[in-house]
């Protein structure tokens, strides 16, 4: 349990540094396909969080029992089971959402985020850390999805969560068509890279200045503003 990485960082890394959608480019299919309205984005995000938490927890619990040769097959069955639970629950409780997400709920099975986290994290870490990792990754996915979906819904339909924002404005339908999905995500990725690059540059500049000011005594970590560590 006493890793070098604090619990808070375990969660936070999924939101920006290792954001599954914007940085790792995982799970692109649902990201592009269902983000035609903000509510779809939120629903898909929540479904993925649920599956991710359950499968990460389950896999990290059974990781010592499953022989290495069949681990992928076993993981896939575990993931598919939780996905089916989500699918059936949504059909039973939220039929409208379920029909607008269509086949993309069962397709969570092949969302690379989930198998990726199972293989890269849950199979090597304890249950508590695996759940934290799942929460962070799931939240990062949900936030990116909701952002992309809101943008597309506002531009393509003139609404946000179904509420009309600009009654007198003819929306650009192309934004909620497939082409708009590619274009919006491409520009968002460009924006994220831009932010990161200027961040990097200013961090490097701050580092240089700090070390100059302290005449070489400052620790690089302090100048870079390492986030305070805390236990969740």
């Amino acid at each position: 349990m006493k890793g070098q990485v604090s619990a808070r960082q375990e969660v936070l890394k999924g939101l920006w540094d290792q954001n599954p959608t914007l940085r790792q480019l995982l799970g692109m299919c649902p990201t592009l396909a269902i983000t035609t309205s903000a509510i779809n984005g939120v629903a898909m995000g929540l479904a993925v969080i649920f599956v991710l938490i359950c499968s990460n927890l389950m896999i990290s619990l059974v990781r010592r029992l499953v022989p290495n040769q069949v681990r992928i097959a076993a993981y896939i069955v575990i993931i598919a089971t939780f996905v089916t639970v989500v699918d059936l629950t949504m059909k039973a409780r939220f039929p409208e959402l379920s029909s607008s997400l269509g086949a993309f709920i069962p397709l969570i099975v092949v969302n690379c985020i989930i198998l990726g986290r199972a293989e890269a994290f849950a199979s090597k870490n304890g249950p508590w850390r695996s759940v934290l990792d799942a929460v962070g990754m799931g939240a990062g996915f949900t936030v990116s999805l909701t952002f992309l979906a809101s943008l597309r819904e506002i531009l393509g339909n003139g609404t946000l969560f179904g509420v009309t924002l600009f009654p007198a404005w003819e929306p650009w339908v192309v934004m909620i068509l497939p082409a708009g999905g590619f274009l919006t995500l491409g520009l968002i990725l460009g924006g994220v890279n831009l932010i990161n690059r200027s961040h990097e540059a200013s961090r490097r500049r701050a580092l240089v200045e700090a070390s100059r000011a302290a005449a070489g005594f400052a620790l690089p970590g302090a100048a870079a503003g390492t986030p305070a560590r805390g236990e969740a």
Partner: peptide, 9 residues
């Protein structure tokens, strides 16, 4: 990825 997505669009 950015330009790839724009081309795909």
């Amino acid at each position: 990825a950015g330009i790839t997505l724009l081309v795909a669009g």
